[in-house]
Design a protein around this nucleic acid. Structure first.
Lengths: 189, 189
DNA sequence: TAAAAATGTAAGTAAGTACTTGCATTCAAG
DNA sequence: CTTGAATGCAAGTACTTACTTACATTTTTA
């Protein structure tokens, strides 16, 4: 079709904003064009279909490998310190992708397939990293394990709930500290 | 309009099922009628508008006062025992209302106002009950409090995440036991 | 400045939406 | 058996949707 980066970007951003608020079905191409400040025809010239539009938006938002790198490079082997860093990084990444996550949550009748899978990938990966970390720490006698997978999931679900509550940065930071204390105390032998 | 209970019920159930799966916007009255096994006109004769349909579905699903009763009557003052009962009751209530909660989560362009508020009421209430419980237990020296509100929220968010993951009853029960152990251990002085 | 690419404008298509109307049919209650 | 309520059926309204086509205008590039 065409390629003017700034026009494409304006359209993508408008689509993401609107769909995060009103869902895929509830957002019309006409409205996307209007918010982007272009003609509706231009939307179709750039992306062909409404579905392509969302898929393009997905590709633009690189789900970070940041988390994997963190687990390999920046953990120090102290439970409280590590959980704090993991929690903070988790929210940082989730916030970057908040709108796409919202779109996936809301769903839609003709939502392109990749969307839900893409939204699932990240937590799946974190669960594995966190479970492995707990088992390793257990081997070193630094953590009390019963069911490491469920313990990892508890940690993640707790943070996911906080993420969904749109906390202010201040309250969020308080929560991260409080919940880390809680978990570290529960898991320390 | 009219009142044949079994017809109304069939329509309401079809609407709830479809909207929980595809969202309010993504569900057409035509499809609702088809799944309910009635003519589309009958849907409008019973409920007038699509919005009324959802509101009627809301009223049918009585959000339980069960939780309040539980906190007043059935808690015994032992942290582990109480948290276990609270967790189990939480999931029981949430499962009863799963589909309506899904509809509220997905949202929609013309979703009637009451829906989101109704879906919020229950967690709000639980948060207060749980916070008060923790403070009371703290007064008796049975619990170690730092920020009781955040501690209550952590507990709720963790369970909310589990609820959203559609666990089998077996895994869910395992999770409830594991997370209760975890919390009880963290909060015990 | 001239060609080419990107956009705007206007109009239209085909399908779907919520909702209505008029009339025929079923069915239960008096 | 008759009446009236509940439903089915067929058609239609007014509107929105995603998407297309043809042509004129602007902007970029060479």
């Amino acid at each position: 079709m065409t390629n003017n980066r700034s026009t494409s970007d304006k359209i993508l951003q408008a689509a993401i904003d609107l769909m995060a608020e009103k869902g895929y079905d509830g957002t019309s191409t006409k409205e996307i064009a209007q918010v982007a400040g272009v003609n509706e025809v231009t939307v179709f010239r750039h992306f062909g279909t409404k579905g392509n539009l969302l898929e393009a938006a997905l590709k633009r938002n690189h789900y970070a490998e940041e988390m994997t790198k963190l687990f390999h490079d920046r953990l120090v082997g102290d439970l409280h310190t590590d959980l704090l860093l993991i929690g903070r990084t988790y929210h940082q990444i989730m916030n970057q992708n908040r709108k796409l996550i919202l779109i996936a949550q809301k769903g839609g009748s003709s939502l392109p397939e990749g969307v839900s899978e893409e939204a699932d990938r990240h937590p799946q990966q974190l669960k594995k990293l966190l479970t492995d970390y707990l088992m390793e720490m257990s081997n070193e006698g630094k953590v009390m394990i019963t069911n490491p997978e469920l313990q990892a999931l508890s940690f993640m679900w707790m943070h996911y709930g906080a993420f969904n509550s749109w906390l202010s940065t201040h309250v969020l930071e308080e929560f991260i500290e409080e919940s880390t204390r809680l978990f570290a105390r529960a898991l320390t032998p």
